[in-house]
Structures are given as structure tokens and as C-alpha cells.
């Protein structure tokens, strides 16, 4: 598979009243054409920030991309000019946001918003763009799409809004689609509809998909490879099959044991990860996970481990071999 995107040593810092928060700290990963990459982690682990920074959507101030490079089609997106990055946003790399209510503009019709990328990126005239928008809405199974073009977002249900978002994301046949918690706010039956639709559309167009979520089930169903993040760092990288069968990082092991599963013996108590996720402004010395880790050794308190390869396509950031 061809390498489509590579992120090297990306760091994003936010300056807050409590000091500098390292929301993303030296992460590196790659994305191949046509694959689905899952980024999983709890709230505040930096999964959304790492994705937003791919399109330089981090508000500055307070946020700042302090280090690293993002290579896409032979150039570094962090060094690209404003015009260049605008040309990429929505055109080559598209984003589908979590909250369809807040990320759609309430005073523009759905038609105007779905047609916009056609006019901006493909220089279409209004009429032609509107016709394309109808097609795009049809593709995401919005019934009566011709009529619904004149509707405003509040007239759409949550699931339909998210469909419209997906339609917008796919307008320009992007190479990469980033879906940031695309279905978290939705009911399970709608979630299943939308994710199946998204996966199908990416297979049809050959786009690569990055799914950001905290739901391990979604990753298992839709992702090929997974990055597990904790406190701004990637702690485990593996193929989805490997990660679920042989999780190696204590945090990943803990996550797997702590979620109830539909096919599991119910009599067993869940094994939670003790303690609380750390405050990013006040991270512990050494490995950020060590206060909650049951396998910790002396070294974990002193220095933070970096990713090391343990088998083909499986890396962990941990001093211990569990």
C-alpha cells in the first residue's frame, strides 16, 4: 500500500492559565491509501487535537503547533501557505465533525452549505453546484433531497444533519476523510447506519478514513489499524486484529478489560483501570500512565518510554513486557 500521509514528531501545545498543556506530544504515524485508521482514547488524550492539526485548525492562540511535520503528497502541510492549506481543506482532506448541530451554519440552508465546496474548489456556477448538491445528498440517502435543499439545519434530525455533513465531506472526492467522533451524539441504530454508509462510500471512492472515537466497538468493526492515545502520546500502534487479541500496553489491556461486551460472560466483574485520567497541565514524571499502571517498575517513574517495535506492525510505548 502506498503511503499517503505521514505525521512525524508532531507536538501541539496550548498555553493556559495553569501553564503549558502538551495536548499532543511528539506523535508520529502513517496513513496508507484506502485504509481506515482508528484513533482511540479517552476525553482529553489529544485525539481530536492531533486530527485538527492535520488541517491546521487549531485556534492560535492559545494553541500552537510547536514541532513536527505532516507530509502529504510530498509537501509539509505545516509549512504550506494559507492559500495552499485552504485548497487542501475540504478538497483533498475533508473533516466530519462530532456535533452536526454546531458545525453546520444555522442561518444557511443545507443546500448552500453542501454546494459551497463545489463552488470553492471546483469553480462551479451556482446552479450546477446545486444540482451536484442534490446528487451528494442522494448518495447519503437523504430522501426527497431536491426539496430538502432549501431546509435549514434545524429542520433536519440529528442523523440527517450528520448525513449532510458526510455529504459535504465527500463532495470533492477527498483522499483523506477525518471523522472526529462522527456518531457520538447519535443513537445506536443511526450510528450503525452512518458508519456503514461512510465505510461504503470510502471503499467506493478509495479514500482513506481516520476515525477518532472513544468507542472500542466502533474501531473493531470499522478500522484496519489503530493508534491508542493516552495523555497526548500514542502508547500503542497495531492492526485492529492484533490490538484486540494481544493488547500489549497496560493502558490498552486495561481498556479492553474494563468495557462490558455483548458476547462476554456476565458473571465476571469488570476490571476497571484504577485512578483518574491525568491533568494534562500537571502530568506525572516519567510515563504518564504509571500512577494507574499495575505493571509499573522503577524506571517508569523516571523516564517516559518511546515507541518500540515488538512485532510486525505492532509498537508500544512501555518499559515493561507484559
Amino acid at each position: 500500500m502506498a503511503k499517503l500521509l505521514s505525521v512525524n514528531n508532531l507536538s501541539v501545545h496550548f498555553s493556559t492559565g495553569n501553564g503549558v498543556v502538551k495536548a499532543v506530544d511528539q506523535i508520529s504515524y502513517e496513513l496508507n491509501t484506502g485504509e481506515t485508521l482508528g484513533i482511540v482514547g479517552e476525553s482529553g488524550c489529544g485525539k481530536s487535537v492531533s486530527a485538527l492539526s492535520l488541517l491546521r485548525l487549531i485556534p492560535n492562540p492559545p494553541g500552537k503547533i510547536v514541532d513536527g511535520e505532516i507530509l502529504f503528497e510530498g509537501r509539509d502541510l505545516l509549512k504550506a501557505s494559507k492559500e495552499e492549506i485552504c485548497d487542501i481543506r475540504g478538497n483533498k482532506i475533508a473533516m466530519i465533525f462530532q456535533e452536526p448541530m454546531t458545525s453546520l451554519n444555522p442561518v444557511l440552508t443545507i443546500g448552500q452549505q453542501v454546494a459551497e465546496p463545489f463552488m470553492v474548489h471546483q469553480q462551479m456556477k451556482k446552479k450546477q453546484a446545486a444540482a451536484e448538491a442534490v446528487k451528494a445528498l442522494k448518495k447519503v440517502h437523504i430522501p426527497d433531497s431536491g426539496k430538502r435543499l432549501a431546509d435549514y439545519p434545524h429542520q433536519f434530525s440529528g442523523g440527517m444533519r450528520q448525513r449532510a455533513m458526510i455529504a459535504m465531506g465527500l463532495t470533492c472526492a477527498p483522499k483523506i476523510i477525518i471523522a472526529d467522533e462522527p456518531t457520538t451524539a447519535l443513537d445506536v441504530t443511526i450510528q450503525a447506519q452512518l458508519l456503514t454508509l461512510m465505510k461504503q462510500l470510502t471503499i467506493d471512492t478509495g479514500a482513506a478514513l481516520i476515525i477518532i472515537t472513544h468507542n472500542l466497538g466502533i474501531i473493531a468493526r470499522y478500522a484496519d489499524r489503530v493508534n491508542v492515545m493516552y495523555a497526548g502520546k500514542i502508547v500503542e500502534k497495531a492492526s485492529a486484529a492484533d490490538l484486540y487479541k494481544y493488547p500489549k500496553h497496560p493502558y490498552a489491556i486495561g481498556l479492553m478489560a474494563s468495557v462490558p461486551k455483548l458476547d462476554q460472560d456476565v458473571k465476571t466483574r469488570l476490571q476497571p483501570i484504577e485512578g483518574q485520567p491525568p491533568d494534562l497541565a500537571d502530568l506525572p514524571e516519567g510515563c504518564a500512565f504509571h500512577p494507574r499502571c499495575r505493571y509499573k517498575i522503577e524506571q517508569c517513574r523516571v523516564s517516559a518510554p518511546s515507541l518500540r517495535t515488538i512485532s510486525d506492525d505492532h509498537e508500544i510505548a512501555c518499559w515493561v513486557d507484559v
Binding site: Q193, G217, A220, R221, Y244, K261, D263
Partner: peptide, 20 residues
Amino acid sequence: LSAVPIPDPEVEAKREQFVI
């Protein structure tokens, strides 16, 4: 039930998926 993904890719691949 079918809409809820199980965190295990092997089980998921074998499951019949019935989307409402």
C-alpha cells in the same frame, strides 16, 4: 443488538449485520 459493535474484530467479521 446488531447495531452495537463488539470490541473484537474477529467476532465482528462473523456477525450478521442487520441495520435498522
